[in-house]
Amino acid sequence: MARVVLNDIRKSFGAVEVIKGIDLTIEDGEFCVFVGPSGCGKSTLLRIISGLEEQTSGGIEIGGRDVSLAEPAERGIAMVFQSYALYPHLTVRENIGFGLSLARRPKAEIAAAVKKVAETLQLTPLLDRKPKALSGGQRQRVAIGRAIVRDPGVFLFDEPLSNLDAALRAQMRIELTELHAKLGATMIYVTHDQVEAMTMADKIVVLNGGRIEQVGTPMELYEHPATPFVAGFIGSPTMNLYEGKVARQMGCDTYGIRPEHLTLSSDEGRWQGRVRHVERLGADSIVHLDVPDLGPLVARTTGDARIAPGEALWARPQEGREFRYGAV
């Protein structure tokens, strides 16, 4: 089966080390998301797993086989690129069947495989079109089809949804999750969007500066972020984080509280501040407060809360929802 094991992977470009020793096991059939800010090495790590980039040191196992030095085509993987990377001179049918025709499979077998994939992805009416005659979402599906037809043990996705508009992205998130359930293959998905990570992953790997910050299920990361970095990265709007004097007063190096774990009130609480701005999202309102001695504080409250800029408000953290890092 397709269990992926990374053993102390390191990668340097010249004198710069971008991947600084990564040990990770991705179980068979797992949907694993690499998430992190740009430049954290997540795409490089994916390219190392795919074999497009060679690691400087360390080993990779896929399905119990050491593939550290294997060619990309021999690793049992398929990859979906951010730009889709469809061959512009070939039709959808030829794009999907390209890998099989390179492997010199019989024509009937290729046709059957392409047909099956096209039915899975509802691409059948588009089979004879060229990529330039397709919409963004359709191109995305062709790129996924090209991956599925190889019947790989591991799917690699490199920010596949970042070129789509918001509505289509939400739809594709669901389609990808369903596809994962249907195929049961291992999937590794790279994104900088924590919403994609939270909604799709079985396991999230948060990367920062070439190192793993934390590995866990989405709710584990949300409820128990191991470091201030993870705390600030997972969750939207981002957690309020304070360092320095303010944090020391509360007995730690970094103090954090999520916007949704603050209770606003007009007469009592821990901090009093003045409302600078209110973002109304319909179901929720995001309130930006200026608190003297603390700084800006973001709180989430109900959509119908009657709050106006300039108003003075109290905020109180909910019991057991505060995070203290480097507590003395």
Partner: peptide, 18 residues
């Protein structure tokens, strides 16, 4: 021509000359 195309072909199992 985007380099992604080369890489997609490599993953599809194409040799350099292919």
């Amino acid at each position: 021509i985007p380099r992604d195309l080369d890489e997609a072909a490599i993953i599809d199992g194409a040799k350099p000359w292919q």
